[in-house]
Write a protein that binds this DNA or RNA. Structure first.
Length: 635
RNA sequence: UCCUCAGUAGCUCAGCUGGUUAGAGCAUCUGACUGUUAAUCAGAGGGUCGUAGGUUCGAGUCCUACCUGAGGAGCCA
């Protein structure tokens, strides 16, 4: 028998028909005679009510109908006898596909905090709110592709791994193959070497070290050695020294095999421990000398020479050299020193050069547009910024259309039309989910303090966005408005307003939420606060040069789109890349201006910010299934 | 990374200027109830008060450090 979807059944009315459904129990009530089970299969927001006559089922089976369990039900579709739902299913047979122990299943049939559900992100798609959010997210995903396809764009897969770090869009994640590190010891755990166990530092301890004792990351070697090598991890150090002593380089690099060889001589450990005890409270140079005496071979001398040198020096370079020159310390120290300080050696790079995770596919998208006419990318992007806000993620999805023969005004037209289309698509196709989110939004909003409340409901807001024209003003006009605004005159802005500043979020919020009360497109920003590739306006007085940038700001979430017309003039662009010292690296980008250059434009839309806007959620971590933020990559 | 706030039962939270045996609602378990709708009623179990130090005769409460979370800022999408 074929399983039917609940969203379909809830709309049907051919009563008396035998059907089969499967889903998860969302609600369960009843008495000694009859049980009511709310079953949801994710196909829609509502669940369908399954009615089970107690006498038809074994007591042992009935006991397994707990919230969260998965059932497969065969029964008859009927008009409901009770109030609250139109139809229900009188069950003939019920099979428990998967039990959910009520003692340990975390999702209860009650309202959970978003924080709690975030920590249980693997199960949160089983809740009303999150299933609605993710269905809307799907709607928007689909609408993006549909819009572009219908409007003559081609999907363009720009690379995720990139050697260019010139986009200027924030910190990047380094991509490495870690062939060496793969062999390193296990850290943050108790490691047993030759019958002795060592508590190695955890990453938390290490970051604590960086944030406090070594602020700024300029490691004072003496301190490092003293505090961490000796004091805190002396056992580890003892092992380290011994390890250096015994292992040849090849062995070190092929670390997996020789574990059994590591501690062949317990007397050496004892001897070293004695040395250690003697000098525990004396200065480290004495310790170094004493250790020096302990070593005899040429290799040992070499190590000690380096150790001694770096102990006397304060600078990072020497530390790194020291660490890199002793294979085992290199392996160990990779846990203690940010990897970007180590191994800028191209020979160990997988791609033969430094590579990163992309922060933007724009530069490559331009290459596509300057051949295919109109292209768009829709893929993941990565920012290594330590940002902890409700609108930033380390991994997020970005949509970047890029169009040849588009001036800045065409770009704005597209951005506005595109946004409206996406919202309209969601409203038309996922009305139930949005109605639910609207209700939720209103409840949340009413719980807020009066001055923080949004004036419009969610649906009302979305409707107004698709019906009204976005405000379009220049940066200069925006500054004028701000200068004449009440908060500025009363000194309420925390940051001063003057031509040339980058607008702070308090300024943007004032423009969008207080002054215009609708989406605003700002354009023509000062050149000096924008990226190198933006087209420079002509005939402007010195010090007041602007570029054809545009930002679309939306109420509640701020900047949702950032874009520009691109500089298509080879000389002007080269002047900017020269100034930044990236001309050589970007030869291929400049080539597009050398051969058949044309005016072109594009923008980037942060997909999660769009989902935030449409769902009315307030934290970006709740609109992506598994958010990545600093210190969080669970799931 | 900075600022502010928070961390007490499975969840949400109360716990006053330090003072005897740390509480409530929901959830769970047991029992009652012929159609429930966040079911209802009666009872039971459930806690290293984020971690480590410190002050004190005495710390959930005060101090210090760290960890984690939230909100705001910066960076941006």
């Amino acid at each position: 028998m074929q399983r039917e979807k609940i969203n379909y059944l809830l709309k049907s009315d051919d009563f008396g028909r035998k059907i089969k459904i499967s889903g998860w129990i969302r609600a369960e009530r009843g008495n000694n005679y009859v049980r009511f089970i709310g079953l949801n299969d994710g196909s829609c927001l509502d669940h369908i009510q399954v009615v089970a006559d107690v006498e038809k089922f074994e007591e042992a089976l009935l006991k397994r109908f707990n919230v969260g369990a998965a059932l497969s039900v065969v029964g008859t579709l009927k008009a409901s006898e009770g109030k609250g739902q139109r139809i229900e299913i009188i069950a003939d047979t019920i099979e428990v596909l998967g039990d959910a122990d009520p003692d340990s299943y975390p999702i209860q049939p009650k309202k959970h905090s978003l924080e709690f559900l975030r920590e249980n992100a693997h199960l949160r798609s089983r809740t009303n709110t999150f299933s609605a959010i993710f269905r809307v997210r799907h709607a928007l995903t689909y609408a993006v592709h549909k819009y572009f396809h219908d409007n003559g764009f081609y999907a363009w897969h720009s690379p995720i791994l990139t050697a260019s770090d010139a986009e200027g869009a924030g910190e990047m994640f380094r991509v490495r193959n870690f062939l060496l590190e793969k062999k390193k010891l296990t850290f943050g755990k108790t490691t047993t070497w030759g019958g002795l166990s060592y508590q190695s530092p955890t990453s938390n301890q290490i970051s604590a070290v960086y944030s406090n004792e070594f602020k700024g990351l300029f490691l004072n070697v003496e301190e490092l050695i003293e505090k961490h090598f000796f004091n805190k991890h002396k056992h580890f150090f003892e092992g380290l020294v011994n390890f250096c002593k015994q292992e040849e380089q090849d062995r070190l690099i092929n670390y997996e095999t020789p574990k059994s060889l590591l501690w062949s001589s317990p007397t050496e450990i004892d001897a070293l421990s004695e040395v250690w005890k003697k000098y525990e409270h004396t200065d480290k140079l004495t310790v170094a000398k004493e250790i020096n005496a302990f070593f005899t071979s040429e290799q040992e001398k070499y190590i000690l020479d380096l150790l001694g040198k770096s102990m006397k020096s304060n600078d990072t370079v020497n530390t790194i050299n020291f660490i890199n020159n002793i294979p085992i310390t290199k392996l160990c120290f990779h846990n203690w020193i940010p990897s970007n300080l180590l191994d800028d050696n191209e020979s160990v790079e997988f791609f033969g050069r430094k590579t990163h995770l992309t922060v933007s596919g724009q530069l490559e998208a331009e290459l596509g547009a300057l051949g295919l006419g109109k292209v768009y990318t829709f893929g993941p992007t990565f920012r290594a910024e330590n940002s902890n806000t409700t609108r930033h993620l380390a991994e997020f999805w970005m949509i970047e259309p890029e169009m040849a023969f588009y001036e800045i005004e065409d770009n704005m037209d597209l951005a506005e039309d595109f946004l409206k289309y996406l919202i309209r698509f969601a409203l038309e196709n996922y009305a139930d989910d949005l109605a639910f989110l609207d209700k939720r939004f209103t409840e949340e909003n009413n719980a807020k303090k009066k001055e923080e409340r949004a004036e419009q409901g969610l649906l009302e807001k979305l409707q107004s966005v698709i019906e009204t024209d976005f405000v379009r003003i220049s940066y200069t006009e925006a500054i004028d408005i701000l200068l004449q605004s009440k908060p500025h005159k009363k000194g309420k802005f925390q940051y001063p307003v003057e031509w040339g500043i980058d607008l702070q979020s308090e300024h943007e919020r004032f423009l969008v939420e207080k002054h215009f009360k609708k989406p605003v497109i700002l354009s023509n920003y000062p050149r000096d606060i924008k990226a190198f590739y933006m087209k420079q306006n002509e005939g402007e007085e010195a010090g007041k040069e602007t570029v054809r940038a545009m930002d679309v700001l939306c109420p509640g979430i701020g900047e949702i789109i950032g874009g520009s017309q691109r500089e298509e003039n080879y000389e002007k662009l080269k002047a900017r890349t020269d100034a930044m010292g990236i001309t050589d690296e970007l030869w291929w980008y400049l080539d597009t201006r050398k051969f058949g250059t044309v005016p072109h434009s594009g923008f980037g839309l942060g997909f999660e910010r769009l989902v935030l806007f449409v769902t009315g959620m307030s934290n970006i971590r709740d609109v992506i299934p598994f958010p990545r933020t600093p210190k969080n990559a669970e799931f």
